[in-house]
């Protein structure tokens, strides 16, 4: 008997049945509660949640304002961008020392490992927790938000959701869209030594979200 067959047989024996019984009854309905929160309040909550974690939130009045903020923030530091159209639309690629990451994984990884900042957009943001939701795609690579010490995300306001419940109602099966969905909630951190908080372990130690 294969390991698969044997394990399934053991399970059924332990549960007191001989064969597969098909889709089981009695699965409790999922608990999805989406509150009605006005945009201004969502922005406030997102900002408060992320700043509590030492992330920074900037509310940009326009795409130009977003670009200017990024320019001031980089202040000469080098950066790699994702392929997200919104990043280009904000004009970030016109800034000095900012390079497009492109779609070739090896050179991209090289840039991410050596440059100071990674600039991305985000598919969604969650106001309850101050999280970015990043789906891996031809626009967003996994490494841009992960390897550089600074992560900057430019997010249009209409992508700001209330929280997990709303996200999972929009994407009930996220793997239909992507092989990798990541929630990023603040800078990378650890408290493994004496419970003392240290930021920037393996991921970015600094995170800025520009709500446009």
């Amino acid at each position: 008997m294969s390991a698969r067959e044997e394990i399934l047989t053991r399970i059924r024996a332990s549960l007191g049945r001989a064969n597969s019984t098909g889709a089981p009854a009695g699965l409790p309905p999922s608990r999805i509660v989406i509150p009605d929160v006005p945009l201004e309040r969502r922005i406030e909550k997102f900002t408060a949640a992320l700043e509590k974690l030492n992330g920074k939130v900037h509310r940009a009045s326009s795409r130009d304002d977003a670009r200017d903020y990024v320019e001031r923030l980089l202040h000469g530091r080098t950066a790699v961008t994702s392929n997200a159209p919104f990043v280009a639309e904000c004009g970030v690629l016109t800034l000095p020392n900012v390079k497009p990451g492109g779609s070739d994984p090896l050179p991209l990884r090289g840039m991410c490992a050596t440059l100071d900042a990674g600039i991305t957009s985000a598919d969604y943001a969650l106001s309850d927790t101050g999280s970015l939701v990043m789906l891996s795609s031809n626009e967003e690579a996994r490494m841009v938000s992960l390897l550089p010490p600074l992560h900057v995300a430019l997010v249009p306001l209409d992508r700001l959701l209330t929280g997990l419940d709303e996200l999972y109602s929009i994407l009930p099966v996220p793997s239909d869209r992507t092989s990798s969905m990541v929630f990023i909630t603040g800078p990378s951190r650890t408290a493994d030594i004496e419970q003392i908080l240290v930021r920037g372990v393996h991921g970015p130690g600094e995170i800025h979200v520009v709500l446009v």
Binding site: A49, L53, N83, G101, S103, P105, L108, R109, D128, T129, S131, S136, S137, N138, E140, A141, R142, M143, L164, P174, S175, T178, S179, S180, M181, V182, F183, I184, T185, G186, P187, S188, R189, A191, G203
Partner: peptide, 27 residues
């Protein structure tokens, strides 16, 4: 740890897909 969400929550399904830029080739 008293965190509403941990810093990273990854939802992973299979290897990198056609069109995706990075990620593992085998899962």
């Amino acid at each position: 740890t008293g965190q509403p969400l941990t810093v990273y929550t990854s939802f992973l399904s299979g290897p990198r897909r056609p069109g995706e830029i990075d990620g593992p080739e085998e899962f």
